[in-house]
C-alpha cells in the first residue's frame, strides 16, 4: 500500500520538478556553470600526483550535484510545502507517511542520477575527465552515490524544519551548502586547507562524498595526495552511514506536517 502510493507520489514529484522549468534548469545547470568557470580559469593548474585541478574539481562538483539534488532540494521544497499547506492537506488524508518520503526518495535518486550523468558528459567532453571503465570503480561509485544520496535526503528532510517560512527557506539553506563546498574540498583542494578547517569539514558528509567521488574518478596514484595517503573507503562509508542513520532518527523525531505554532 505505502509502496504503491509511494511510487505514485514519485511520479507526481517528478512531474512537479520537471514542470517547474526555471528551477529545474538552474538546478541542473548550476554545477555545470561552476564546472565551466573553474575549469576555464584553472585549466593549466596541475596538482601534485599528475592530476589537473579541473579533474579534481569535477569530482567535487559531482559530489556537490548529489548534495544539491538531495539535501538542498529537499530542505527547501519541504519547507515550502510545510508553509503553503501541502503537508497539512496530505496529513488529512489516509496517505501513509512512508509513502510521502518514498516519493521524495524516488525523486531525489532519479534527479541525482540525471545530475551525475550531465556532469560526467560535460566533464568528459570539456575537461578530459576520465570516466572509469572497470567494474570496481563503478561499484565504489554505486555505494558512494547511494550513501551520499541517503544522508543528503534524510538530513535535508530534517533541515527543512529550520527555516521559519517558505520565503526564508532558500536564504537559510543555500549559504549552508556554499560554506560546506568551500571547506569540503570542492572549490579548494582539501589537503591545502588549514588544519582546523579540514577538521570542521570532516564532520560533514560532503567532504566524504567528495573524497569518495575522487576515488572513483581520479587515478589510484592520487590517493597518496590525500591527507592520510589513502581514499579511506571504510571511514567514508562509516561517516556517511552515521549521517544517514542520525538524520533518519532526527527526521522521525522532529518532522512536522504543520507550520510552527499551528497546533
Amino acid at each position: 500500500m505505502a509502496l504503491r502510493i509511494g511510487l505514485s507520489r514519485t511520479v507526481l514529484e517528478l512531474k512537479q520538478f520537471f514542470r517547474e522549468r526555471d528551477s529545474m534548469v538552474f538546478t541542473f545547470l548550476f554545477p555545470v556553470i561552476m564546472l565551466f568557470i573553474f575549469g576555464s580559469v584553472f585549466k593549466d593548474q596541475e596538482l601534485p600526483g599528475g592530476v589537473s585541478f579541473t579533474q579534481y574539481f569535477t569530482a567535487g562538483m559531482i559530489a556537490t550535484g548529489v548534495m544539491l539534488s538531495s539535501f538542498q532540494q529537499l530542505a527547501i521544497s519541504i519547507a515550502v510545502e510545510r508553509d503553503d499547506g501541502t503537508l497539512k492537506r496530505l496529513r488529512g488524508t489516509p496517505m501513509p507517511p512512508a509513502a510521502y518520503f518514498l516519493g521524495k526518495v524516488g525523486m531525489v535518486v532519479l534527479t541525482s542520477l540525471v545530475q551525475v550523468v550531465i556532469m560526467l558528459v560535460c566533464g568528459g567532453l570539456l575537461f578530459g575527465l576520465d570516466v572509469p571503465s572497470d567494474a570496481g570503480s563503478w561499484l565504489t561509485f554505486t555505494w558512494v552515490f547511494l550513501l551520499g544520496t541517503a544522508s543528503g535526503t534524510v538530513v535535508g528532510i530534517a533541515f527543512s524544519s529550520v527555516p521559519r517560512s517558505a520565503k526564508s527557506a532558500g536564504a537559510v539553506v543555500t549559504p549552508a551548502m556554499i560554506v560546506l563546498q568551500f571547506i569540503s574540498g570542492v572549490y579548494f583542494v582539501y589537503s591545502e586547507l588549514p588544519g582546523w578547517m579540514q577538521d570542521v569539514g570532516a564532520v560533514f558528509p560532503l567532504k566524504w562524498l567528495t573524497q569518495g567521488m575522487r576515488s572513483v574518478f581520479l587515478p589510484g596514484s592520487f590517493a597518496a595526495q590525500e591527507i592520510t595517503g589513502s581514499w579511506e573507503p571504510g571511514r567514508t562509508a562509516l561517516v556517511l552511514t552515521a549521517w544517514a542513520a542520525g538524520g533518519l532518527v532526527l527526521c522521525l523525531r522532529t518532522f512536522r506536517w504543520q507550520r510552527r505554532g499551528d497546533r
Binding site: L12, K15, Q16, R19, D84, G85, T86, K88, R89, G92
Partner: peptide, 10 residues
C-alpha cells in the same frame, strides 16, 4: 481546510 494548498504545476 480554510487555506488552499499550492500545487501549481499539477
Amino acid at each position: 481546510l480554510q487555506s488552499t494548498a499550492e500545487t501549481a504545476e499539477l
